[in-house]
């Protein structure tokens, strides 16, 4: 039967194809076959958020998804957020707030925060905490992460205001 196939999908705006085996998870394929190391596997159970990517604009845990099922989808990873050398406002906000120590969880947090702000440009503390309850930072940079979300939200709102 079929334990190997070629998947075709869009990765950070570029059409790509890759041969994958049935057992390969999305995070494995991104890391090993596309050399994109920003998406990380940590808890391996969908609890920690380090492996967050967008599939068709929805955040998913790439450690709980088989690469097989990426066929035909539109995938965005942390590497696809910046516009050339210009960082995404959420990335800038994390740097400004110093919202990390080791940085292992940071891309997952940034992906979740960017998605939160796209749905809710001015989230309350409770809404932020609730949404990020599925992301773990073992360096415990949570207070700075809260600051970063607020800085990012203010940046996004001022950009929106500046638009004609």
């Amino acid at each position: 039967m079929s334990d190997i196939r070629t998947i075709r999908f869009t990765l950070n705006g570029t059409k790509v194809s890759k041969v994958v085996e049935a057992h390969e998870t999305v995070v494995d394929v991104l890391t090993r076959k596309f050399d994109l190391s920003g998406t990380r596997e940590s808890c391996r159970q969908g609890l920690c958020g380090c492996c967050t990517i967008y599939v068709d604009s929805n955040p998913v845990s790439s450690c709980l998804m088989l690469a097989w099922f990426l066929d035909g989808t539109d995938v965005r990873t942390i590497e696809g957020l910046a516009d050339g050398d210009t960082l995404d406002p959420v990335q800038e906000a994390f740097i400004e707030a110093g919202a990390f120590q080791c940085g292992f969880c940071t891309s997952g947090f940034i992906m979740m925060v960017k998605h939160l702000l796209s749905e809710n440009p001015d989230p309350s503390d409770e809404e932020i905490r609730h949404r990020l309850a599925g992301n773990l930072c073992r360096c415990s940079a949570y207070p700075e992460i809260m600051d970063a979300v607020k800085i990012a939200a203010a940046k996004a709102r001022s950009v929106a205001k500046a638009r004609p």
Partner: peptide, 12 residues
């Protein structure tokens, strides 16, 4: 849904 897993799991 508020306390069911997290958004990434609920999306799938």
């Amino acid at each position: 849904m508020n306390t069911l897993a997290n958004l990434r799991v609920r999306n799938v």
